[in-house]
Design a protein around this nucleic acid. Structure first.
Length: 338
DNA sequence: CGGTTCGACTAGGCGACATT
DNA sequence: AATGTCGCCTAGTCGAACCG
C-alpha cells in the first residue's frame, strides 16, 4: 500500500505538499499539483482513513440512527436515509447506520470517536435518548421534534401545520364532518412526536372552523384500514372529508371506501399525508400534503455539519407543508339550498 | 504508525525612492 | 530617463510537532 511519503517521493515534494494538494487547504502551483496528482494515480494511493482520523480528529463519518422496527414504513425511512447519505457524500462524508434496537450503539460509536456527528430519526416527544444525546461531544441533529428541544438541533416537517392544513382545506371546500385516519395505534401510543403533532393541529383547526373532527388510529393492513374506516363512519356517518396520515393504509382505505359505496371524491374527499410518489401511485392521483423526506434528511446533514464547523448554535427548523390538489378532493355541496 | 496542521523560510513581484 | 536597491507582501513549499 502506497503511503503519502511514497507519493511525495515520486512527485519530488514533501508529504505536507501532497496533503495540501489533497485537501485544497493551501494553494499549490499548477505544475506541482500535476506532478502530485500523477504520482497519486500512478501509485493508486488512497489516504489511510485511520491515520487521517488520528491526525485531524475527524472521521468524515456521520452516524445515523434509523428506526427499523415495527409500525414504521421502511420505504419512507429509506427516503430519509437517501437524503442523508446523498447530502453527506456531497460534503465528503460517509454514513454509519445504527438501528434503534441497538441500545448502547449510540454511546459506543460516539464515545469511541467513530463518527464526527450524529443524526437521529423518529424522535418521540419524551425520547429516552435525549439525555444521552445532550451529553455527547459530537453535535447531534434530530429528525423530529421532542417536547423539550432546548439545546438540541431539530428538523422536521411542521406536522402540526400539516394537521391544520388538512382540516382547513377540507373546511374551505365545504366539509363540516371530517376525520383524521392516523398512524398505527402503537405509534400513537408511543407518542411519536409527528403523530401527536398532526392530531394537535387537526384538532385546533377543527375547533377553529367549527368542524366535527373524528380521530382514529389505523393499522397499516387491509383489516386495520377497514376497521378504522368503519369506526369513523359508525361514529360519524355524515363524514365527507378524510385526512389520512398513514401511507401503508392508504390503498386499503381507498379500497374499503369503494366497498362501502363511498365514491372518492364525489361522496368523500380524501387528503393524504405522504410522499408525492406515494400519492401518485394510488388507484387515483391523491390530493396530498407532501412529506419531503429526502429534503429533510439533506437539511439534517447540512445542520449537523454546520454545527460541527461551529457556525450554528442549536436551532429548530420546521418545514412548512405544501398541499397539492389532485383527483381525490372536491367541493362538498350537500347543504346547497334550492 | 500515516496522516494533518502550523509556523517558518524562500523566491519573486511591486512600488517608492535614491543614484547614476 | 534609466537603473539600482530597499522594504514589504504573497504564493509556494518544507520540517517538525502532534494525534491515540
Amino acid at each position: 500500500m502506497a503511503t503519502i511519503e511514497d507519493v511525495a517521493r515520486a512527485a519530488g515534494v514533501s508529504a505536507s505538499t501532497v496533503s495540501y494538494v489533497l485537501s485544497g487547504k493551501r494553494s499549490i502551483s499548477a505544475p506541482t499539483r500535476r506532478r502530485v496528482e500523477h504520482a497519486i494515480a500512478e501509485l493508486g494511493y488512497r489516504p489511510h482513513a485511520g491515520a487521517r482520523a488520528l491526525a485531524s480528529s475527524r472521521t468524515n463519518v456521520i452516524g445515523l440512527v434509523a428506526p427499523l422496527r415495527s409500525g414504521v414504513d421502511v420505504a419512507v425511512i429509506m427516503q430519509f436515509v437517501t437524503g442523508v447519505v446523498t447530502r453527506a457524500r456531497e460534503f465528503d462524508h460517509d454514513v454509519l447506520l445504527l438501528t434503534q434496537d441497538d441500545t448502547g450503539g449510540l454511546e459506543r460509536v460516539a464515545a469511541g470517536s467513530m463518527v464526527d456527528a450524529i443524526v437521529v430519526m423518529d424522535v418521540e416527544a419524551d425520547d429516552p435518548r435525549i439525555p444521552t444525546l445532550r451529553a455527547l461531544r459530537q453535535p447531534t441533529v434530530l429528525i423530529g421534534l421532542p417536547r423539550e428541544p432546548a439545546g438540541l438541533s431539530c428538523v422536521d416537517l411542521d406536522f402540526e401545520a400539516v394537521g391544520r392544513l388538512g382540516a382547513t382545506h377540507l373546511a374551505r371546500t365545504g366539509h363540516t364532518d371530517v376525520a383524521l385516519v392516523g398512524s398505527p395505534p402503537e405509534v400513537m401510543a408511543r407518542h411519536t412526536s409527528y403523530a401527536d403533532r398532526v392530531v394537535r393541529g387537526f384538532r385546533e383547526a377543527c375547533a377553529e372552523h367549527g368542524l366535527r373532527g373524528e380521530i382514529e388510529p389505523c393499522e397499516p393492513t387491509p383489516a386495520g384500514a377497514r376497521h378504522a374506516v368503519d369506526a369513523v363512519l359508525d361514529r360519524a356517518p355524515g363524514t365527507t372529508g378524510l385526512l389520512v396520515h398513514n401511507e401503508r393504509a392508504l390503498p386499503h382505505v381507498l379500497a374499503h371506501l369503494a366497498e362501502r359505496g363511498r365514491a372518492v371524491p364525489d361522496d368523500v374527499s380524501l387528503v393524504a399525508v405522504c410522499p408525492t410518489d406515494v400519492a401518485l401511485a394510488q388507484s387515483q392521483p391523491l390530493t396530498s400534503i407532501d412529506i419531503p423526506a429526502e429534503v429533510i434528511g439533506g437539511v439534517a446533514v447540512e445542520m449537523v455539519l454546520s454545527r460541527l464547523r461551529g457556525e450554528q448554535p442549536a436551532e429548530t427548523r420546521l418545514l412548512a407543508p405544501v398541499l397539492t390538489e389532485r383527483d381525490s378532493t372536491a367541493v362538498h355541496e350537500a347543504h346547497v339550498s334550492p
